[in-house]
Simulated assay, not measured.
Amino acid sequence: MFLQIEKKELIRNFLVSENLILRVNNDFELFKNEVFISDKVLDNSYENFKEKIIYSDKTGTWIDKNKFENLSYLKNSKDLRNETIIFSGDFKLDYPNFSNKYYLYNLKTREKKFLLKFKNLFYFFRKNTFLFFSDKIKIYSFIISDDAFVWQFNLETLGKFEDRDGNLQNYEVLKFIGAWQNSILVACSGQLVLDINSNTGELNRKWQALPGYGSSAFQGRLQHKIPSTDGFQLDISKSYLYHLAGAYIVTIDLVTGKADYQSLKNALEEHVFSGFRWSTGYAEDETHIYTIAEMNRLKLGLDYIPQCIVAFNKKTLKIDWHYRFEGDWIKTEIPQIANNKLYQLSGDNTLYIFKKEE
């Protein structure tokens, strides 16, 4: 399906979109017949917005030469559509005493306005004119056009769950998975996914139980439940959630509400794979999911675990293509796909670029 066309070394981070690929190695390089270089020391706060690359440093600079004073970092801005970013200001170097002021900036109108003041906000998600954010314990809804709060949902009302060691813990938000019809889907600790009405804040549905799934380790405390929910992703069809967990695919059908799982053992063993590496996300298109699988070192007679990037067929539940990283390895970087090209950053800071064959 794919042919490796290039390997770029000394790559620290990258982003792809329909138009841009960003290379970060103490400077910028845009692979679009243009090169932008920055002598700034960058942190990990950067995003791409159509024709702009936005990054955070002490002056809050981005590529089209606009600046904000005392910008500390962007807050999950990739979830907020291409016209809006959120950042926190009044940066303080005495970590962890970060700023508690958050601002909105509209890239089209170039309007900046104060959004809200909270001690700690970790997750943001936007659906139409609604902005949802969380401090891990509570979820808040805010209408951007009206500058008004609509509702809040307190996870403490859900009670507590027993962790793998048998200790009782409060539920916390792990991430916003996405939006479906009039709902937002929220991944929580304790192997819990919430479906919350985006207009009212009412809890529509929740998923946690999955009879038959899971191992009996930790005295079975994680058994008969869905896997860790920060591994779920909303399919491109926006009709179901999926998670490639080890040697299984776990799905949640948003139409019927049914959670299910299926063994992929035979499909994996066909290519001498032991399972899929755990991930918080995947690259995908209409037909395939792209992720990392680990090979069975015992069957191969090796003292290390080879890793491969694979194309997993959504319809047949089989692996249609894979590429083995010889002498290299993958940490937690998620594959990215755009313009019929597939990208994977390795643990040795090499960016592998594959082109889809006709």
Rank of each mutant, 00 (worst) to 15 (best):
S198W: 02
N197S: 08
S274L: 07
D57V: 11
E51Y: 08
A217W: 14
L302E: 02
L10S: 13
G347N: 06
N33L: 07
Y105N: 09
F98M: 11
N182P: 01
S215P: 01
E29T: 13
W151M: 04
L185M: 05
Q219W: 07
I292W: 05
K175E: 12
Q208F: 13
I53L: 14
Q223Y: 11
L268R: 15
S198F: 07
S72G: 12
N296D: 15
W62I: 15
N33R: 10
I143S: 10
V41M: 09
F87L: 10
L74S: 06
E9I: 06
G212E: 07
F114R: 07
L158F: 06
F312D: 00
E111L: 08
I289L: 14
M1Y: 12
K58C: 07
Y123F: 15
G301V: 11
Y240A: 07
L3F: 10
T280C: 07
K40D: 10
D39N: 12
T316C: 02
Y123R: 06
D235R: 11
D320H: 05
Q344A: 04
G214S: 08
E69N: 14
K138R: 14
R81G: 15
A259C: 10
N197I: 00
L121A: 05
L222G: 12
L342Y: 00
T350P: 03
K238F: 03
R277Q: 15
D27I: 10
V35W: 08
K175R: 06
L168N: 10
F49A: 09
T229F: 11
L244K: 11
T316Y: 05
Y290A: 09
T251C: 14
G246Q: 10
C188A: 02
